[in-house]
Nucleic acid binder design. Sequence first.
RNA 1: GGUGGGGUGACCGAGUGGCUAAUGGUAGCAGACUGUAAAUCUGCCGGGCUACGCCCUACGUAGGUUCGAAUCCUACCCCCACCA
Length: 376
Amino acid sequence: MFEFRIQRTAGPARAGTLTLPHGEVKTPAFMPVGTHAVVRGLSAHDVRRTGAQIILGNTYHLHLRPGEEVIQQMGGLHRFTTWDRPMLTDSGGFQVFSLQGLRSIAEHGVEFQSHIDGTSRTLTPERAMEIQWQLGADIAMAFDHVVPGQSSPTAACEGMERTLRWLDRCKARHAELADGRTGGQSLWPIIQGGIHDELRMRSLEGTLERGPWTGIAIGGLSVGEPKPVMHRILERLEPSLPKEIPRYLMGVGFPADLLEGIARGIDLFDCVAATRNGRHGTAWLPTGRVNVRGASLKGSTEPLDPTCDCETCTTYSRGYLRHLFVVEDMLGLRLISIHNIRFLVRLGELARTHILNGTFDGWTREWLGRHYARGD
RNA sequence: GGUGGGGUGACCGAGUGGCUAAUGGUAGCAGACUGUAAAUCUGCCGGGCUACGCCCUACGUAGGUUCGAAUCCUACCCCCACCA
C-alpha cells in the first residue's frame, strides 16, 4: 500500500497525505529519530502521544545490536518496538559521515570498525537493502556516501557519483528482495552533491533517470554548511523535483529549519535535536529556546510552554522541570524530549493547517521574522 | 590537664620558601548540539580596572625571619584522636 495525495499547495509548500503499509502520514511532518529502535528515553506510548506519525530506525546501529536476524525473528521492527504506525529506516549512509574515523570507503562498500566491540562490519548497498528488508520498515533508504559540508567540489562529486552508482545496486537488490510484489517496503533514493549547485542538479538528474521512485530524499545538508547555502540548494532543486512524490530533507532540523524547508517544498523531516537537546536540557518554545537547567526557572510555577498541549507542559511546572535536571533524574530528560518532539510535530501540523487555509505565507513570514529577530 | 594530628578560596581537598590568585573534584553560572559513538561536551567560577595587561585582598589570628612565606619561627584561638 503506497499513495501520496496532495491536498493543497502554497507556492512550493504542500499539504499532502502519504499512505504507507502501516498507516497515513499527513504532511508536512516531523519524524522523530529512533536509531536503536527506540526514540531515546521515550516509550512507544510517549511517542504516540506527541502526535508523531512515523519514526526512524537505523540500519547500521540495529545491525550491530541486536542484529537484523533477531529483529526479524521477533516479527520485525514494528512488533519489536510495539510502534504500529509507519517507520522508515536510514541506510547507514549517515554513519559514513559521522563515524569517519572508524570506517574506510571503497567502491564495493564501506568497512566499519564497530564502535561497540571493534569488529569489522562491511556495509554494501546490497547489505543495506537486505538488512532493511529484514527490519521491515515501510520505507528503506538507499545507501549513500555523505560528505562533510565544507567538502571540495572534487570530494563532493566523488560522493555524489558513488551514491548514484550505489543507487543502481540498491535498486537491483531491493527489487530482488521484493520479488515482484508491490505495496510493501518502498526504497527512496538520496540526492547528494555537497554545497555545489551543479553537483546537486546532476545528482537529481541521475537519480530521476533511475526512477520512478515513490519518494525522494535530499541528504548531506546541515552537516556544517551555512544555512543560506542549504536554502539556496533547496531552491535550486525544488522546481526539478517531481511534484507527485514526497520530498524528505534528511537530518533537518531545528524549528526554523522546518519552516524554511516547508516553504521550499519539503514534506518530511527528521532530526535528533529534539531528543538530544531535550536530554541536554534545551527546550524549544514559541518565544525562543530555554535552558531548563538555568537559574531563571527556579521556583517558577508556570508551565514550560503555556501554548503547548504536551504531557510536560500540561502537567508540570518550570520549577519542577529545572529541579529534575538539577538532581539529574531521568524523568527530566524524558519530559523535555516529549515537549521538543511535540513542538516540532505541532509545527508541522500548524504549517499544514495554514497551507490548507491559504494562510501559510503570512504565517511563516511572521513566525520566522520573530524567530530571527530574537537571534535564535 | 598531657600527647599527637590538623585549620587552604561556597564545600571537599592538593600544595611544605620564588614557576601560587593558589592542582583536582563538587556545587554554582553560561553556552553548544541538525539522517544519534552524546542523560554529552565546552567555557566561567576572590574583587576591581582606562581589561590579551595592571591593581587590591587572600591559605585560623597576631607578630617575626627572608630580597621573597600558604609553605620556616613564636605566641594565641579553634577542631579531631588517644591518654589521664
